[in-house]
Write a protein that binds this DNA or RNA. Sequence first.
DNA 1: TAAGATTAAATTGTGCACAATTTGTTTATG
DNA 2: CATAAACAAATTGTGCACAATTTAATCTTA
Lengths: 149, 149
Amino acid sequence: MEREQLLKLDNQLCFAVYALSREITKIYRPHLEELGLTYTQYVTLLALWEEDDITVKELGARLYLDSGTLTPLLKRLEQMGLIRRVRDVKDERNVLIQLTEQGKALKERAYEIPEKVFCHLGLDPQEISQWRKQLTQLTHTIQQFKSEE
Amino acid sequence: MEREQLLKLDNQLCFAVYALSREITKIYRPHLEELGLTYTQYVTLLALWEEDDITVKELGARLYLDSGTLTPLLKRLEQMGLIRRVRDVKDERNVLIQLTEQGKALKERAYEIPEKVFCHLGLDPQEISQWRKQLTQLTHTIQQFKSEE
DNA sequence: TAAGATTAAATTGTGCACAATTTGTTTATG
DNA sequence: CATAAACAAATTGTGCACAATTTAATCTTA
């Protein structure tokens, strides 16, 4: 790429992803508000609805977040009555995250979220699926790159 | 999509973009640290290196950020001596953002950032370019959708 | 031209996001 | 066994990100 083009904002993949991520979050926000959740709380619950009773560490690996972000977030979800934080008796370094009945029940109300969000955006589901796969692949590539350093 | 698949984390485009955005930022961080910049400060300067002497409003439209985020960020850049914040004498509601000589000079050192970041990632520049265009298009689609509501 | 509407920044308050450090537990090793 | 190394969460501190509100300037229009 030409030197002159190298620093143009619209030529940065990083900015395209960064801007899109925030715009997508803004689309979710009003719908999530009805469930009383922030966006990060929502994806945390998505992970837990798939696999329950896992450690903060495992949850962090799934979401690419560390304990600095997760600990206060999980305390909020606990205060809302959606999860429990339990020290693992077998290894007291670990804290297990368990959905409460209320937390499990919220899943039923959450099904409408992805439906509502993409309902009127006029996007081809197949195309979206392809992008998703490619972006996930790129995330993994970066992850691998980091661990090689 | 099957109801059972609807809430799976790995089926969410939103999560793919959200995770990728944060992973990309983590790649930039150590390189930007050498320039003493955060990621958002960096993209703000990218915008200003393209077009200087613009209002906070215009800068916000370019970056999809509002004054709540920009005002404190711009104050920090001002303290670093990279920009000036000047009330527009023609319309005192506006604040014009102007690069200082030091801010303009930093551009020379910034050229190495995109080079370093993608140097060893083994990504095809053409492919990246295509993704960037598609992601930007999707951001615009969402923007348009929001303004129609 | 005065009152209300509109606009741009700034402010306030909440919640991430993450680096760096601390605390407490477990494992490895001399 | 003791002690160092490794490990998982929690804590601390900085900087976004954004909704909601406030402040101050400008525009509209009756």
